Computed example of a mutant assay.
Amino acid sequence: MTQPAPTILPPDPHTRRPALALPPRTCDSHCHIFGPHALYPYAEGRSYTPHDAPLPAFRALHEVLGVDRAVIVNATCHGRDNRVVTDAIAASGGRYLGIANVDESFTDGELEDLAAKGIRGCRFTFVRRLGAAPDLAAFHRIVQRIKPLGWHVDLYFEAQDVPDFVGLLRGLPIPYVIDHMGGVRAGPSHDAAAFEALVDLLASDEKCWMKVTGPERISAAGAPFEDVVPYARRLLAAAPDRVLWGTDWPHPNVTRMPNDGDLVDVVARYTDDAALRQALFVDNPARLYRFA
């Protein structure tokens, strides 16, 4: 008998207003909306079941943080049903764009429809705990099909696997975005060789973009995430024009739920350079995702 997918932690409902004031048009470049399940059912065979984290809560979070724009990434719990993302985009007045989950069952017309609805790329998850890794032959076929749409691929790895994929990534014909600092682990389990490969890839391949996100996933010590700061600084220095920031709200599959105010304020320790913060929060996502 199949075991039900475990229910994960809900987000912290008491978002702290951050001390760091975000610049106008700040973009949360990695965030999710879950449900409500009555409208957007969770997928059969999912690896986890979230608490609903619907659009009104999403908007309330960004109001407290001072975020104006967002790129909503469809999470694995919604499977290949992208309506939770495209409906939010349609209601946003141009403030939201999205990343879809697709596979080879999508027709070219369906992919074009997603592009018209504000989808800018598609995500592939190589993290074992979230299910089987993508078939690489199918992955390459999808890459060729999305290339005319101007899309990129969004990739979620475990750090120890990054070196094995460097050759594949360098050979991609489209831009690619790596989630959550490549999944590196701070503290005693630090993935030193994998992180060096990641920094070199980011510095040397202009198709590579990095989400400097997920300190709550990376940190061994927890908030205020001081042990993550050196890794973020290295990545920002490697490619200041190809780094992105986001909350990852509502933080699926974390062991300790963060407060999103802390996830804004830690960036003040990544850099005190106003121009670099402007690039990270505003200019880089505007360029990659093609906000109006």
Rank of each mutant, 00 (worst) to 15 (best):
D273M: 08
F225A: 09
P18G: 06
G35K: 00
E110K: 12
V162L: 07
P134K: 09
V127F: 09
P4S: 09
T2A: 15
E216H: 15
H78D: 03
L61E: 06
Q144T: 13
G131N: 00
L263V: 03
K147D: 08
R123C: 03
M257E: 06
T271R: 13
W245Q: 00
C77K: 11
G45D: 06
R17Q: 10
T247Q: 07
H51G: 02
Y289H: 05
N82P: 07
F225V: 08
G94L: 00
H30C: 00
A133K: 13
I99Q: 01
M1Y: 15
D28E: 08
H190N: 11
P215A: 02
S219K: 13
G66N: 02
D227P: 11
V266T: 05
W151D: 03
I142Q: 14
Y48R: 04
R145W: 01
R80Y: 15
R123H: 00
A292V: 09
D135I: 07
L39N: 12
A133P: 09
V229Q: 01
G121F: 03
K207P: 06
D241S: 12
P285A: 00
R185Y: 06
L114F: 08
D179S: 07
R256Q: 15
Y156M: 12
P11I: 07
M257T: 13
D135S: 09
Y48L: 03
A115H: 09
Y289T: 09
G118A: 04
S219D: 12
G171K: 08
R217W: 07
I119G: 04
A239H: 02
S189R: 15
F126K: 01
L97A: 10
L9F: 15
P6A: 15
A38K: 14
I33R: 06
T247P: 01
A203P: 08
P163D: 04
L172F: 07
P50D: 02
A274D: 10
P188W: 08
P250V: 14
Q3Y: 09
P56V: 01
C77A: 12
S204I: 12
V102E: 07
E63Y: 06
R256E: 15
G98Y: 00
S47I: 11
W245T: 02
A90E: 12
A138N: 13
A238Q: 01
G246V: 12
E196I: 01
A279Y: 04
D265Q: 04
H32P: 04
N101D: 13
E196D: 07
P148I: 03
A5W: 04
V267T: 06
P173M: 05
A223C: 07
I146N: 05
D260I: 09
R287N: 12
A100F: 02
V267D: 01
L235S: 01
I72C: 11
P134E: 07
D161P: 14
V143C: 01
V243L: 03
L201P: 03
H62S: 10
P258Q: 10
R185N: 11
D28M: 03
P6M: 15
R120C: 03
P148Q: 06
L263I: 06
I146A: 07
A43Q: 11
V166T: 13
H51Y: 01
D191R: 11
A132V: 14
L22I: 10
C122S: 14
F139I: 14
A220G: 01
V166S: 13
D248I: 00
G150E: 05
T49P: 03
G150F: 04
T15D: 04
P175N: 09
A279N: 09
R128E: 14
D113Q: 15
N101W: 14
F58I: 12
D103A: 13
A220F: 05
R95T: 11
H51Q: 04
R290Y: 11
